[in-house]
Design a protein around this nucleic acid. Structure first.
Lengths: 376, 376
DNA sequence: AACTTGGTTGAATCAGCAA
DNA sequence: TTTGCTGATTCAACCAAGT
């Protein structure tokens, strides 16, 4: 795992997927062109932020702030940065499956340009996510608010994209049974998690916390999916993907980062399958048609169903339709019809009398489902 | 105060400032051109967001969401929206003093375009500020994260601008003596603050909370300063400016909004000078979800939790859910399930073994909370 | 008077599949 | 590509009415 691939001939390998769980050395766009069309399930991109720093920044105690002034973060102008951004985004879209999604993280220096270009390229923004830092760097000059967050954009490859993965139920269950919001709170990467060289200095200036990547990957991919990171850096995406039972592909130009990331990922122990099971809701359950209930005798032809307050009633017919007054149809159609609505979930609308109380027919469906589960 | 000015001849009035504390009726750009150069200290702009909505959206209870589908939010394309944005931003800069600053609020639908154009026009971004909503609208279809914030950009008129107002010490004092961060927590505008017509319906679909404007104005202006709002709407900027001892100028096209704003502002009582020195904001106790413990490593995926008497056990999964036997769910749901109850407080029910004794996971939450106590 | 219950609402780019 | 069917899906706050 985490071997480094030479660039030549990758695309021709087609479905062999020898590039899985590797770091490709090279320029982002060139390396992306070597990968097959529609081959990855998700992309997490942490591109250069194009920080426009003036002189050296000193803390109040006169110590010097170790700023991000690497060569790879220098762009001559917004135009150059925009062209760079368009190029790698287009290359990413070709590689992304139609059902895949793209994440980009940035700060106010670059994220507005990235977001506007995403829209110009007809990507479809699903959310902007705010990473609130528990321990951001203070503003030393006292001339601005403390810059305490970064922004991520989560986007589908086009406006019509359907079927992307969003583990809604897992996110909700993990968040004390309320929807996960667009503002996330995490510490910055520090302490033992922060990669340091033999000189004790940080290996990469903008290493992202694993917790952030973990939520991204848990939310938008399934176990076994492939996650691409075109600006691999210290390999946080790869380390978290491996730990969470996903495959990764990294692209990185600098050998020092590749070395550090390879070593880091090699030490990661994947979690077991049982732990990685993703919480799913009703949507993922086997479909059970109403007539199965009739056929199995859980509901009898001629039986009367009502809504929860007995305002409306319907009679069950042998073919699995229900009838009320002059109307008849599926449990959904008739439920909508009697209420005067466009749609209705008949499973939760119609109830049966168990001798004591009214219970939704959805409970009978659960019985069928649990019977089916035993037959696996 | 809050009289409505006709548009003609304003610019010629020069320094007479008869336009102070008035609402100018007209198109944003045209009205701005009627104001003198370098005449206002701050601008707060809440432009149309260019929402691109599909069909009608229903809540789970089948009620219809009252969407923002007003004519003024309709743009033919991104190009048209961008041209509109460039025009009003340029007009704003001419009117803004060299020492003044500009605020723009938006959502992911438009804020990236606004930010990129600001940079293209050589505005200088000072901060992006996240307004975290305490009570955002849910995501009804479960296909995205709950869109729980909006973004503001705070910018100086050019890269070299010096001497802008930032009341650093007031912000810090108001924030329990730590620097004010770039993420702010406020409820949406509702209840008594929300302007309603005689029909009981909201006057304006996107009225902003006064608390938000109060922090903006307190942070970036001095008493007696002039605050311009080129998209005045229901007049929140004017009402707060007046209350805080600042002057305002509003621009608005629709007479209904002008009427409501005028009446609203007339009823505002300015605060006394002494009161205007320091303001404090209240804080809510941080809510910590279980997955935060997993993400921060206080609880590990695969770790076993039990109840206080070890009668039941559960395994922690990477997505922040817990599993036991064939069941899985949130700590609360699973706790209820294994006990055969309807509800359960998972925080006090589930325990971990610290090597000596069983301790409720609630104690781990306390640890996180004390780390977060410095924040909203 | 204090509390409970039920209804309403908010800047929303909000479904998936099979025929 | 379009149509139609199945059936999944909400949180915090405010307010009015009932207990």
């Amino acid at each position: 795992m985490a071997s480094v691939l030479p660039l030549a001939g990758l695309r021709e390998t087609g479905q062999s997927r020898i590039w899985l769980d590797t770091i490709i050395k090279g320029d982002c766009v060139a390396a992306l062109e070597a990968l097959p069309d529609h081959s990855v399930d998700a992309i997490f991109a942490d591109p250069p932020y194009n920080l426009q720093l003036g002189g050296t920044l000193h803390r109040p105690d006169q110590s010097v702030v170790d700023a991000v002034d690497d060569e790879w973060d220098q762009f001559a102008s917004f135009e150059v940065y925009d062209a760079f951004t368009r190029a790698w985004l287009l290359a990413c879209r070709r590689v992304l499956k139609p059902t895949g999604t793209l994440w980009v993280i940035g700060s106010y220096h670059n994220i507005f340009r990235v977001g506007a270009i995403l829209q110009d390229l007809n990507f479809w923004i699903l959310n902007d996510i705010v990473w609130r830092k528990t321990n951001p760097m203070p503003n030393f000059k006292g001339r601005r608010f403390q810059n305490a967050h970064e922004t991520m954009i989560w986007a589908a490859p086009n406006a019509k994209a359907k079927g992307y993965t969003f583990n809604y139920d897992a996110m909700k269950a993990a968040n004390d049974d309320v929807q996960m919001r667009s503002d996330w709170l995490f510490p910055i990467c520090s302490g033992g998690e922060r990669l340091k060289g033999e000189d004790g200095k940080k290996v990469h200036p903008t290493q992202k916390p694993e917790a952030l990547l973990a939520r991204v990957i848990m939310a938008s991919t399934k176990p076994g999916d492939i996650v691409l990171d075109p600006f691999f850096g210290s390999g946080t995406t790869g380390a978290v993907a491996k730990r969470l039972g996903r495959h990764f592909v990294g692209i990185e130009r600098e050998q020092a980062y590749i070395d550090a990331a390879s070593e880091r990922i090699a030490a990661v122990e994947p979690l077991g399958k049982a732990v990685l099971t993703v919480m799913t809701g009703k949507k993922a359950e086997a479909r059970v048609a109403f007539n199965v209930l009739v056929e199995t005798g859980l509901v009898k032809p001629g039986q009367v169903l009502t809504d929860a307050r007995r305002r409306w009633s319907a009679i069950v017919r042998a073919d699995g339709t229900v009838a009320s007054g002059g109307d008849a149809g599926s449990i959904h159609r008739l439920g909508a019809k009697v209420q005067g609505l466009d749609t209705c979930n008949g499973w939760t609308f119609w109830h049966f009398d168990d001798g004591k109380t009214l219970r939704p027919i959805d409970e009978l469906r659960s019985i069928v489902r649990s019977d089916l589960a035993k037959m696996d």
